[in-house]
Design a binder for these strands. Structure first.
Length: 381
RNA sequence: GCCCUCAUCGUCUAGGGGACUAGGACGUAGCCCUUUCAAGGCUAAAACCGGAGUUCGAAUCUCCGUGGGGGCACCA
């Protein structure tokens, strides 16, 4: 029948041919050993109203509905029959499900009526759309590339990519619902106090991934240095980076605000992994406020200081004080800035790095001295 | 094709007849701060899909259109 309808250019649809079949005929067909399904007689006219907590009443013309199968030919019930029974006996009060279920709601409503059971409240939630492409974002898919951005889908993927669970929860709660009072950062307890189903925005939304980065950074910044170190280490270990917990602990107080994701720690510790100072030229180690001779003197002073510092004084405060002083002495304008800039380059090999003094402590005395010596050689030669 | 549904800055949203010169956030741009990059502070550009109604008055209500999403299984 289905094939005949398609062949005839019609929409395949059950024609209700057995809707009012007589008991005799049923017996006759059964005797023939024909397989069969059992359908639910839906009303032929009138309307079925699905009360929805988010959208209000959704009205369907019964003439548009069909007689749904409630028992398959295997004798097993279909989902439609099963949920209604299951939800009823589980004393479900609210059915919240995706938008894609609205069209099946009328059969459920009619089944509740047929059973004479109290209907739970329905709430059809908006779906989440693909970031830039078309269609909805399926929960069953995995992360995929969309243009040049990686679209994460599963919670495990968010975790693997350095997002904190509370940040993800905050982010998700903020889609389709808003906390109010222009507040964007909030926890589950606070939002639960305010949450009402009817406040949900019925429109489908795309995930604003850039905003997730911002939220995640907000949560990372709220972490104590110890907690941040603890969150970062698993990633260091996962990727077998030759970096110690002590090193991360030194950087933790100053890198939090630089991390959108925990995995951004990689670029912060780059200078520990590869020594890019080998490519530096003498010119890069000078500054218009600090010529070659001054630079040489400054780097030499810095090297001597670092090399002579007892381990117990090899710390951020001590290094900061001394290096600033050295910078001020050897710069035309008596500001530490120019020297600290070149020192960053000489020590990390990068123009951009975590704050210098912390970077030095994390690098360690020996390596710092070695890199400074290289700079001195460049400037001298 | 038929049915259901949705529609405010680029994005997530606030707003539900006069409080709208349409608010916030992300992102973007500029400035300040600053040893770099960030973070932080300040400022800026940026939206009511279109058309008819209803009304003294519409982003808000109604209808039509357009566009988006979903559905039309013996799957859930």
């Amino acid at each position: 029948m289905r094939e005949a309808q398609i062949a005839a250019g019609q929409q395949p649809e059950y024609d209700r041919r057995y809707r009012d079949i007589s008991a005799d005929e049923v017996a006759r067909l059964e005797a023939d050993g024909r397989s069969y399904v059992i359908r639910f007689k839906m009303p032929l006219d009138g309307q079925t109203v699905v009360p929805d907590a988010i959208r209000g009443d959704i009205t369907f013309e019964n003439s548009q509905l069909t007689d749904y199968v409630i028992f398959k030919s295997t004798g097993l019930p279909t989902y439609h029959l099963a949920v209604v029974i299951d939800d009823h006996f589980m004393e479900i009060t609210h059915i919240t499900r995706g938008d894609e279920w609205v069209n099946t709601a009328p059969i459920h409503v009619k089944l509740y009526e047929a059973f004479g059971w109290e209907m739970p409240a329905f709430a059809h939630l908006p779906v989440i759309l693909n970031p830039s492409g078309k269609g909805k974002l399926s929960k069953r898919t995995q992360s995929f590339q969309d243009g040049n951005t990686l679209v994460l889908v599963k919670t495990s993927e968010f975790k693997e990519n350095g997002y904190l669970p509370p940040a993800l929860i905050n982010f998700l709660t903020n889609i389709g619902w808003s906390f109010g009072d222009n507040v964007e950062i909030f926890g589950p307890e606070e939002s639960m106090e305010r949450f009402e189903l009817e406040d949900i925005n019925p429109a489908a939304a795309k995930m604003p991934y850039e905003k997730l980065d911002w939220i995640n950074n907000q949560y990372i910044m709220k972490l104590t240095p110890e907690a941040l170190t603890e969150q970062i280490m698993p990633f260091i270990e996962r990727d077998n980076l030759p970096i110690t917990q002590e090193q991360i602990a030194v950087l933790a107080p100053v890198v939090g605000m630089r991390l959108k994701r925990l995995t951004d720690i990689y670029e912060q510790v780059q200078y520990l992994l590869v020594d890019e100072t080998v490519n530096l030229t003498a010119e890069q180690l000078t500054h218009k406020k600090m010529g070659p001779e001054a630079a040489l003197a400054a780097f030499t002073a810095a090297r001597d200081f670092i090399a002579d510092t007892d381990d117990e004084y090899f710390n951020v405060a001590g290094i900061s004080e001394r290096l600033r002083a050295i910078g001020e002495i050897h710069t035309e304008n008596e500001k530490a800035g120019p020297f600290l800039g070149t020192a960053r380059l000489a020590i990390t090999g990068q123009k951009v790095s975590p704050p210098l003094f912390e970077s030095i402590v994390a690098l360690g005395k020996d390596e710092t001295v070695a890199r400074l010596n290289r700079a001195i050689e460049r400037l001298a030669g």
